[in-house]
Structures are given as C-alpha cells and as structure tokens.
C-alpha cells in the first residue's frame, strides 16, 4: 500500500517536490499559452459586451483560485495540527503568497472589468467585497506568520488562524450578500450571471483551460517555495549538508 507518510518527511519530499514543480511548471506554461490564444482568438465576441468580457478569462480563474487556495491552505494547516507533521504547515505557508496574489489579481481585473461595464472602478458588489475581505485574511495570515520568530509556533499559530478564517469565510460571504441585497441602492447586478448563462461552449472550454493553467501554476510555485522553506527550517539537518556537498 502506498505509504502516505513516506513522503511526509522533508528529506524524502524534497526531491519529489523538485520533480513535481518542474513538471507542473511546464504544464502550466503550455496551458497558459493555449488559454491565452483561445481567449483572444478563438472565443467569439460577446453580443452584449463586445470584447470587454475577455477579462473574464483571467478574472474568474483568479477568483476561483483565491478561494480554493485558502481552503487548501486551511486543510494543510489542519493536517499539520492533527498529525504534527511539520511539512503540512510548511505547505500552508508556501501557498499563502500565491493565494494573496490571485486575490489581488481578481480584485484588479474585477475593477477593470467593472469600469467599462458599470462605469465605476470599485462597486460594493457582494463578490468583490468578500474578495477584498479574503485579501485581508491572507494578509493577516502572512503577518502573523512573519511576526513569530520560532518557526514551530509560527506554523501552529498561523494554522489555527487559517482554520478560524476558513470557518468565517462562508459567514462573511453570506453576510456581505445579505448586506448587498439590503442596501439595494447599489442595484448594479453583476452581469457575470448574464455572461455565464449565455456562454457559448467555446467560452466554457477557454475558462477551463485558463483555470487549469492557474491551478498548475500555483502547484509549481508552491512546491518550489516549499523547497526553500524546507531548506530554511531544516538547515541543521544532515541530509541538507549532504545535499549541498553534492551540489558543490
């Protein structure tokens, strides 16, 4: 039976992460090229929004990734706390910067998409607002982790914060949704719904390709970053010395 815990020790995981990172990196590059080509040349012009809707092909994957990464981060944090495997909390802290980056990209592209469509850079729409709050959660996670010097306490404290955060994400989302519908003053409805329902087959495929590209990109960057974190935290270990001797 595949021994789950064989790769949970940093020493054995390190080389595996290297190979995986390269593989996923190449895959994401290829998918990104295909996706970009499809979103600009293959996807038809939208009957309502003309060319402006093409921002969707980067905005929607980024928004999905920002939420997915936060949940995955919380799972790694939980695993780290339950099984006390140092590697899991290292994975959690390696994912955070990429998640924060995707959240910012989602906000930025959302604003640029909103300008031509709703005429305003920032609209207090429920999804954009919860995305902004998600960015605060990411920043809080990273701030807490960098504020604590002892890596073991940092890993467990930020892990607990990620868990508390992931319980609050749905509550925040629905309270913002409630708040948005209550103050119907901003009655601008996100046209996303409109675009999605009338999305032609090819648009859905382009969206999928771009989403997988972002997904593989995240895995590649996170694995590469986790290798640096492993080296930083395990610098005293003998296998690190051996590894460096061999590289010299």
């Amino acid at each position: 039976m595949f021994n789950l815990f064989k790769y949970s020790s940093p020493a054995t995981f390190y080389p595996l992460a290297g190979r995986l990172a390269v593989g996923f990196g190449i895959a994401s590059a290829i998918l990104l090229v295909i996706g970009l080509y499809m979103s600009f040349f293959v996807a038809p012009t939208d009957y309502k929004q003309g060319e402006g809707y093409r921002i969707m092909f980067i905005h929607v994957p980024a928004a999905w990734m920002s939420m997915l990464i936060y949940v995955v981060m919380a799972c790694w944090a939980a695993a780290g706390m339950i099984w006390h495997t140092r590697l899991s909390s290292m994975m959690a802290s390696s994912l955070a910067p990429t998640g924060a980056m995707f959240t910012f990209i989602a906000l930025w592209t959302g604003a640029l998409w909103g300008k031509p469509m709703w005429g305003a850079w920032w609209v207090w729409d429920a999804r954009l607002t919860s995305e902004l709050i998600l960015l605060f959660l990411y920043v809080g996670f990273m701030a807490l982790e960098s504020a604590i010097d002892d890596p073991r306490r940092a890993a467990r404290a930020s892990g607990l914060l990620a868990l508390v955060g992931v319980i609050n994400v749905p509550i925040i989302y629905y309270s913002v949704q409630w708040w948005n519908t209550l103050h119907q003053g901003s009655s601008i409805k996100v046209v996303d719904g409109g675009v999605e329902t009338s999305m032609s087959e090819i648009m859905v495929w382009t969206l999928l390709v771009m989403t997988f590209a972002c997904w593989f990109y995240t895995i590649a960057v996170a694995l590469c970053r986790v290798r640096s974190i492993i080296l930083e935290r395990e610098s005293g270990a003998s296998w690190v010395k051996a590894l460096l001797q061999e590289r010299k």
Binding site: F136, L137, V139, L144, V164, I172
Partner: peptide, 19 residues
C-alpha cells in the same frame, strides 16, 4: 497585529448590527 487578524472576522457582526 490583533486588529489585522480579528477585524475581518468582526465584519458579519458589524453588518448585522448596523443593518
């Protein structure tokens, strides 16, 4: 740091309270 960590979690209470 406390305010950075905790303020996002206060948002639902703020929304429902003021609302």
């Amino acid at each position: 740091l406390v305010s950075l960590l905790v303020l996002p979690l206060y948002i639902p209470v703020l929304i429902f309270g003021a609302g």
